[in-house]
Nucleic acid binder design. Structure first.
Lengths: 336, 336
DNA sequence: GAGCAAACTATGACCGTTCACAATCCTCGT
DNA sequence: ACGAGGATTGTGAACGGTCATAGTTTGCTC
């Protein structure tokens, strides 16, 4: 096979000339058309091998309007929170014969919208999944000529919302702790600019109220473990708090650290829960009870929904919860 | 602006007709050619706005052979180890006006090579960065018509090699611990199928030998924290080990857990080091001394090198180390 | 107001594939 | 030997831009 960097690639017509057939017959060969004489088939195959021919997908896409590619939009400057989500998305796309392109969108909102429109009309993609919200105008019927699906998992700053901010597990956590005798709780929170942080606090407060429990305080930690640490260190000895609900594993670990530093045992004197299932949380002494979020499934679902949109089918409903509590050493029965 | 999903997009010629100029003048307008009369410019701008015209990048790429896209190859089924690396790659590409497409390659080696060739000749990409090694045949001069750069950071199973497996920091760790009086060490290792695990062990052993220190044992932990935990629990009381070098944060945390469980204090009785800078490692009591690896820079460098290849420039050398030790509470002077 | 260069604009081919349709080649039955 | 009709193949026009080149205006000088 002859080929060199920079050399013009052989075209379907050159293959055809070498094989002694018309270019269209070669095209038929390439699309595995069965109605080709065995003799032609062999000559074409030989010609392709000899020239090292490979189809030009750009030309094909131009004629076809089928590119086999989906775009995954991310706001620039903010890392996607989860690789699993990306992996899930590429998996789902791959299974359907699509390839995913990760495109980052930079600049102010106006510029970003403009780029989305460009992408949607670029002919490069059959569909677009955006992990960041888009201006309403872009989504109205007919605003773009390519289906655009906004995955309802992140806000414009890639802060989890929707399913990612679903805090219902907090209710389970509090309920189960209450069953183990805990009555006075403390919540160490995330940054309230994050919907997930707000929701966790709210469900915490609601559940406390619903079950007639007591919340000693909600500490605004801004995801910063030092504040959770400080808060636990500063708890009055008679505050009665026996359980801390953390907005994520980091603040939970901060709370654990504070407790240990003042001589409290975890969980004998204080139970602590986290969120995110950081792998180290399973190892550190004590290992941390946490909530695992199935990001991979969210990614797969986003792409599946887009593909459904492309095929004009109804999106597949998936009622399974994407969060799941993992009970570990940091929680136990209330003292006494 | 009139536009509907599925509607054919307006072409440059329709814009030209509406503006009363030739299609080529519109093309000049689009490429910001300055030599256009103000009057024409205005009419063209108005026509573009009215029709909602946006250029078809596929058609442009076909004529141009310039797509502005780079492919980033990953073996399917293996999650990329680091988002930062991906973020770095897209950053570097974005800065140069390119967009990165993440393509996963599945199947056995033969099929994968074939897909790489297809991609290289597809006309879709101006260059390809592969994070997984490719068969030697694909890389020889002229095997493909598109530059392919294999980033030397991962092996075929996405296990870190090259810079990612650089274990030279282990020498620094051991040296500094020796300066603090430590003489007898233990290494809790990773899976030796990983070059990084092998290198860390080797540099550990070499440094121990070079400095005339003693290695009590190398424990084959396979990245499993339970084995590190067990190993520390089972250390004879008189073994003399005062420092544990862990192949990553998880086994390090396992070692810490083992030490605490048998009543040893960390770092007063036992110093422990990890690797990877897991964020929880900074919080857990004691916080873990670790090695941070700058994945983002590796991603940026891979793309920069590819772009240099495209421009036929020499790749920019960057001699800064990508690893950096972060000293934390889990290490301290040797006891007594 | 003719002459000329510079500024601007138009024309038609071309990139590599697929599509729609037309043409040719066989294989039979009669 | 001939026509029918299926099997196979060929032809030329699209797709929507850019390139190369040629053509038309315009502005200026004398």
């Amino acid at each position: 096979m002859t080929s060199d960097v920079g050399t013009r690639r052989p075209t379907i017509r050159e293959v055809a000339r070498l094989a002694g057939v018309s270019h269209e017959t070669v095209a038929r060969y390439l699309r595995a058309d069965t109605r080709i004489k065995e003799a032609s088939r062999e000559r074409i195959g030989a010609a392709i091998a000899e020239l090292g021919y490979r189809p030009n997908l750009v030309a094909r896409a131009m004629r076809n309007r089928r590119t086999g590619r989906l775009a995954l939009l991310l706001p620039a400057g903010v890392a996607i929170s989860s690789l699993e989500m990306l992996a899930g998305a590429t998996d789902a796309a791959g299974a359907a014969g699509y390839v995913v392109e990760v495109v980052t969108l930079g600049g102010p909102a106006g510029v970003r919208s403009e780029r989305v429109l460009e992408l949607a009309d670029s002919g490069l993609f059959e569909g677009i999944v955006s992990l960041t919200p888009l201006p309403a105008g872009l989504l109205g019927a007919g605003a773009t000529r390519t289906p655009v699906l906004v995955a309802p998992h992140y806000d414009e700053h890639m802060r989890g919302i929707g399913a990612l901010a679903d805090a219902s597990c907090v209710a389970d956590l509090v309920e189960q702790l209450a069953e183990q005798g805990h009555t006075t709780f403390l919540h160490v929170s995330g940054d309230y600019a994050h919907t997930s942080a707000r929701n966790r606090r709210q469900v915490y407060l609601d559940t406390i109220a619903r079950l007639g429990l007591r919340s000693y305080a909600v500490v605004d930690c801004d995801w910063d473990w030092r504040r959770a640490w400080r808060a636990v260190l500063d708890l009055p000895a008679d505050c009665g708090v026996t359980a801390v609900v953390g907005a994520n594993d980091k603040v939970a670990a901060g709370a654990v650290r504070g407790a240990l530093e003042r001589g409290w045992r975890v969980p004998q004197d204080l139970s602590v829960t986290g969120w995110d299932d950081n792998p180290l949380g399973a190892v550190m002494p004590p290992s941390i009870t946490t909530v695992a979020v199935d990001h991979g499934r969210l990614g797969r679902a986003a792409v599946s929904d887009l593909l459904a949109l492309l095929r004009e089918e109804a999106p597949a409903a998936d009622e399974r919860p994407i969060t799941r509590i993992i009970w570990r050493e940091s929680t136990g029965p209330a003292p006494r």
